[in-house]
Amino acid sequence: MEKKVNRRLTVVTICALALLFICPNAWSADFPKKPVKMIVCSAAGGGEDMETRAIAPFVEKHLGVNVTIENQPGAGGKIAFEKFQKTEPDGYSLIMYTFPKSIIIEYIDKTNFRTKDFTPVFAWSRGNQVLVVHGDTWKTFGDFLKAAKSKTLSGGLSGRGSTVHLAGLVAVDELGIKVNWVPYEGSAGSVTALAGKHLDFTICLATSAVSLTKAGKLRPLVVFSDTRDPYLPDVPIPKELGFEATSMPGIRGVEAPPRTPAPIVKVLEDAFSKAIKEPAYIEIAKNRQIVLQPMSSKEYAQMVEVTYPRVEKYREMLKEK
């Protein structure tokens, strides 16, 4: 009798185990059960933070649970990244930042995290970098280039080690010009200084110079991108101007901790991709002049892969100037 029960128990257990392995989706069916936390690795109120807060209500709708936001600023995001490396891969903690900021940090500094270890979930927006000059100065990129070749111009550096810094280095390298870089903490400082004619040009995110550009105080001469920016349809891209600049746009999206199971990633990815299709969100994105460019988990992973060697090329320059 007892043996029989035992055997029955064994059979049931084996069947249950088998079921578990056959349908791993059983996990995702229970996910998510509690609020999902989005970690922003900069202070409340920054570009990353505002973008997270704008999308959160829409993700909430498609995920069916609350989405909370936690700011973990400090050391340009390094503190948050290092903490995230060791976070439980259960899908309840996600990190939002401007890629490839984390890779730049890896090359500048000793770090206890690896961007390629993180599990990409979904990226939705793209921030193009632009080269801007004062409205009273050069009208075209050609004029600017001629001037830059005849004398060393002063350029505002919108934050050392930022994605914009990298874009500036790439551009200057491709064009073969010399620049007297004047470093600022962020684009607010360099854009103001340019508007006051204290600098000759600066490179910043297109969104940082929108209103002054519209008012004619500043003029963007080139957008570092493979395609024209929908919000700056009149501004040419490097290809049209006859030079190649490996574009390195700031991509905003979310990643999960290392080794997050694929079914969970799928649930999250679906929720985000549906969220950015909501008309109310599209309206907000339009107002903020965010270029929406959905990027799946797979595409995001590929981008991480190809970005490492690109950043490495400028490693020494990032440290020096």
Binding site: A188, S211, L212, R288
Partner: peptide, 21 residues
């Protein structure tokens, strides 16, 4: 920082600050 957040809020509501506002 406070002003930056306020700027962000204005933009979300379609009021783009700048000389033309």
């Amino acid at each position: 920082v406070g002003a930056a957040v306020f700027l962000g809020v204005m933009i979300i509501f379609g009021v783009i600050p700048g000389p033309l506002v």
